[in-house]
Design a protein around this nucleic acid. Sequence first.
DNA 1: CTGAAAGCGCTTACAG
DNA 2: CTGAAAGCGCTTACAG
Lengths: 359, 359
Amino acid sequence: MKEKSAGNGVKEIARRAKVSIATVDRVIHNRTGVSEKTKARINDIIAELNYQPNIFARQLASRKRIEFAVFIPKLSEATSYWKAPLDGVFQAEKELLPLGISITRYLFDQDDVSSFTRQSKLILQKKPAGVLLAPLFIKESSAFVKACHAAGITYVFIDSDIPEQDRLCYIGPELFQSGYLAGHLFRYGITEKAKVLVMNISKDISLSRRSEGQHRLSRKEGGFRSYFEKNKLTNRIIKLDCQKTDYPNIRKRLAAVLAEHTDITAIFVTNSRVSMVARFIETEMNVKPFLVGFDFTDSNIDYLEKGIIDFVICDKPQEQGYRGIMILYQNIVLGLEVEKVHYMPIDIITKENYMFYRN
Amino acid sequence: MKEKSAGNGVKEIARRAKVSIATVDRVIHNRTGVSEKTKARINDIIAELNYQPNIFARQLASRKRIEFAVFIPKLSEATSYWKAPLDGVFQAEKELLPLGISITRYLFDQDDVSSFTRQSKLILQKKPAGVLLAPLFIKESSAFVKACHAAGITYVFIDSDIPEQDRLCYIGPELFQSGYLAGHLFRYGITEKAKVLVMNISKDISLSRRSEGQHRLSRKEGGFRSYFEKNKLTNRIIKLDCQKTDYPNIRKRLAAVLAEHTDITAIFVTNSRVSMVARFIETEMNVKPFLVGFDFTDSNIDYLEKGIIDFVICDKPQEQGYRGIMILYQNIVLGLEVEKVHYMPIDIITKENYMFYRN
DNA sequence: CTGAAAGCGCTTACAG
DNA sequence: CTGAAAGCGCTTACAG
C-alpha cells in the first residue's frame, strides 16, 4: 500500500534536488521559469519518490475554491427532460460543498443558439476548473471545448457525445438499446398474431435535433423495431405520431387507430408521455393492452401502481448529472483516472420495484 | 449560500469570546477542561457564526489518518455472496485513499461465532472511526455495537438489520419484495393453467440462519407466492429443494420432477444457481421453459445471452459495500446527515441491458 | 532562473 | 481551567 508520507513531500524533494521548495512547486505545476536541467532533476526525484501531493495542504494553502460549471439546456415548457440531471448536479453539489468545491449553472435555450454562445463566453471568462456540457449544438460546442482546452479547462460531455473531441469522458444513455430492450419485454406481453402500436408523442418529432442525425425518439423506435426483426417476430407494427400533445388530441388519434386496428393488444410509447395513453386506457378501454413507456415520472408511477402501465424503462437521467460532477471531482481534485465512456444503465421499473428505485 | 469564510474560523471565535484558540478547539471537540461559562459563551458564538470547520486544515493539522473497519463474513466454499460487497468496499477505498482514509477488513467465518468475537476485539482495540458491519450473529453483534457506541465508533449495518440498535443506518436488500417482483415477471411468462416450479438450491436451506426468523431463500419464495395470491393467479406451484448442489444431483431431481409434472412451463430459482437449471434446459429440454433467477454472475449472463434465462434479478450487492463506506465517510468526515434505511434497488437484468449494468 | 519567508485554518504538546 | 507557540505540507507573493 501507500507509504507513510513521513517525509517525501516537497521538502524532501527540495532537499534531494538541492533547490528550494518554491522551485519544486514550479515544476510540480509546470510553471515557467525553471531551467530544463533542474526541472529534469526534480522530475526524476518526484518519480522516484512516487510523490503524491497532500491534497489537504494544497487546498488549504491555495485559498482558491475549485469551481465547476454546468452547461446544459434550461427547463422549458416543451420538456422537463433536463430537470433530472439538474437534480443530480444538486446532489453532487451538496456532497462537494464541504470540500470547497462550488458549482455554477449556465443554462441555455435549446432553441436559441445565441443563448449558448453567450453563456459559453461567460464560462470562458470565469475559467472554472471543469465544465459539464451537453453539446447539443455541435458546431458551437466544438468551438467552445476547443477554447476550454486552450484555457486548461477540463470538460465532460453529457447526454450526447462528440467523440472526436478531446473530452475527459462521455456520460449518457444508449437510446437504441433502450428501444431494443423494450422490444424484449413485448415478447412476453403479446401473442404471435397481435398487432403492436408504437406511439411517438412529441412536439418536435419531425424536426431532427441539430445534434443528431436522427431524432431521439426514432432512435428508440429503431431499437424497438430492430428487436422484432432480429428475433423474427412477425407481429405487425402500427405507427402513430402525435405532434399535438394535449390529451383531447391523443384521445382522438388513439380512438381512431384502435378502431381501425381492433387487434392491437400492445402499445409502446417512446417517451414519458405514456401516462396519457394510460389515462385513455383507464377511461375508455375494457381490455387492457400491454403498455410500456419511459421515465420515472409521478404520473407514470401512478399508472404503474394501478396496473395499467406494465413496465417503465428509465436511464437514470439524474445520475447523469451526479456522475458528471463526481467524475470532474475525481479527476481534477483527486487526480484519479476515469473511463472514457459511461453509458447509463437501462432500468426496468415495475409496480413491484419502483419504491426502491433511485434515479 | 455559504459565506466566504473570510474570518469566521477558530480565530474569529476566539477573538469574540476573548479566549485563546486552544480553548475554542476544546469546546469544538467537546474536550474537558473548560469552565461551563466560557463553554456556553463559545458555543453561542459558534452557533451565531454558523461556524463550519475547514476540513482541509483539520485534516492537515491532525496528522491522524481516518480509519474504517469492514466487518463482514469471508468468502467460503459454500458461497461467494460476500465477494460483491467486498468489491464495492474496494472501489470506495480507491476513492477515499487520496483523502487520507484507510480501510481495514476484518472477515469472520459465518459458521464460527468465535471468529466473530475474536475479530470484534481486534476492532475495538484499533478504534476505527467507523465500522461497516454485517450483524449475522445477533447477540454478539449487539454486544459489539454497544461497545462501539461506548467507544464513540460509528457503525452501519449491512445485509441484515437490528433496528433497535442505535446505528447510523442500515443498507441492504428487501428479499421478500425481490421474490414478489419475480412473481410479477411470471405473469407475463406463463399461461393460466401452466404449472410453475420453484427451486431452492442451497446447502443450508433447512437450517434457518441465526440472524433471521426465516431463511433468505424462503423470504424470496414467500414474496413470490404472495404475488400469486394477491393477484389471484391460480397456477399450481411445485416446490423443489435441492440441498446437494452438484450438477448431477440437480439434473436427477429436475428430470424427476419434470417427468411427474409435464405441464411445468416456468421455473423460478431463488438464487444465483439458476445457471445450473439453465444448463439442464440447454442440454436436455426441447421446449424452453420461462426461467428467472438471481444475481449478476458470469454464468448467469452467459445463459441470458443464449436466451435460456429470461430475467435475472439483482439487488446490487456491490453497491451495498460501496455505499456503506461512503455513508460512513459522508457522516464522519463531512458531517452530513444520512438516511436511516437504504434499501437496495431491485434490478431486472435481461439479455438486452446487462452490458450497461453496474453492480 | 531561484530562494527565503509568510500564511492557509486548524491541532497538538507544553507550560502555567 | 487557560494560553502561547510550533507545525501539518503545501502555495503565494516578493526579492534578487
